[in-house]
């Protein structure tokens, strides 16, 4: 390997200078790296960058898509009461659901970690089931359980003389139902990530803490949490983005109702863009959280990188 990063190629006496430099170019490490990542770059460019740019372009058009109105769609949205409700609801939905998923996942991971390895696998498998079922399908199951007229949960409640709950018909219950299904679906992801993180915490740290007389809470605070900080940040970030973009659960359970009180960005964007034929405004709805999430992601990832460097 040469100092400039190229691979050493034995010179052949009869090759011209041009051919030699081309060969050197193709054998440079950076060239090979570029060529090997080209398929991925094409995929990202075609399936991520292009659609994102196109969505931004769409959001600047008027309803008939004949004229550029700049940020006009965002201005109109901010002047719409329903859209403010959507912002508020999306934040409640995403923050509450992610917190609940993180806490439940953390607790489940600890419980699993305490089970001897032999019996751990079956529990891990069972707890992962909600996460591996396609959400549209499992949400349909939940919808049957919450069905306004024939709810099986209400049937069980009635057996114990508890009055029926309007799971999807009353705003607060509908919000609770939507968050509950999202937590049910997403908690196993947190569990498996935290379990992996827990397994990587060196046992010596706990032993040292025990020698120092640390309590369980102190061990959690001064050993477990600092060691899991990066994985917690990344899972929370990832889940927050995915939960903000959630569509299927709200679409299947409530379709945004009652009175738009469970709409989130994705369902509202679909209603405005596709169903109501206003594609540019729909694009503006779906892009609304993009800058905020991008800033959030920037700070979280910067923190992760900083901590990783410190650990090295």
């Amino acid at each position: 390997m040469a100092a400039d990063g190229s691979m050493v190629v034995p010179e052949t006496g009869d090759s011209s200078g041009k051919v030699g430099s081309l060969r050197r170019f193709t054998r440079r490490r950076s060239t090979i790296a570029f060529l090997m990542t080209t398929p991925l770059l094409i995929v990202i460019g075609g399936l991520v960058a292009y659609p994102a740019m196109y969505a931004i372009y769409l959001s600047t058009l008027n309803r008939r898509m004949t004229q550029n109105i700049g940020l006009g769609n965002f201005e109109i949205l901010l002047d719409t009461e329903t859209f403010w409700m959507v912002i508020w609801q999306s934040c409640i939905f995403a923050v509450t659901a992610v917190l609940a998923k993180a806490l439940i996942g953390f607790w489940l991971a600890h419980k699993l970690h305490d089970i001897p390895t032999k019996g751990q696998r079956k529990w891990r498998g069972m707890l992962l089931v909600p996460w591996v079922i396609p959400p549209a399908l499992s949400t349909l199951g939940w919808w049957w359980m919450f069905d306004p007229s024939y709810s099986s949960i209400n049937y069980l409640l009635n057996i114990f003389a508890v009055p029926s709950v309007p799971w999807l018909g009353e705003a607060n219950w509908a919000r609770v139902s939507v968050i509950m299904v999202n937590v049910w679906y997403g908690a196993p992801f947190f569990m498996i990530m935290y379990l992996a993180a827990l397994k990587s915490v060196p046992e010596q740290l706990y032993e040292a803490a025990a020698i120092d007389g640390a309590t369980g809470v102190q061990r959690l605070r001064y050993v477990t949490l600092p060691m899991m900080r990066n994985i917690i940040s990344i899972t929370v970030l990832f889940s927050l983005i995915v939960t903000f973009a959630n569509y299927d659960i709200v679409r299947v359970l409530t379709n945004g109702g009652p009175r738009d009180l469970t709409h989130v960005f994705a369902t509202y964007a679909f209603q405005v863009g596709i169903l109501s034929g206003n594609v540019p405004r729909g694009a503006a709805v779906s892009l609304f959280m993009f800058p905020l999430l991008a800033i959030f992601a920037f700070f979280v990832l910067r923190g992760v990188t900083k901590r990783t460097k410190e650990e090295q």
Binding site: P148, S149, P166, L168, G169, T254, G257, R259
Partner: peptide, 9 residues
């Protein structure tokens, strides 16, 4: 009307 019509599809 039934109480749950507000959530009917």
């Amino acid at each position: 009307l039934p109480d749950d019509v507000w959530a009917w599809d």
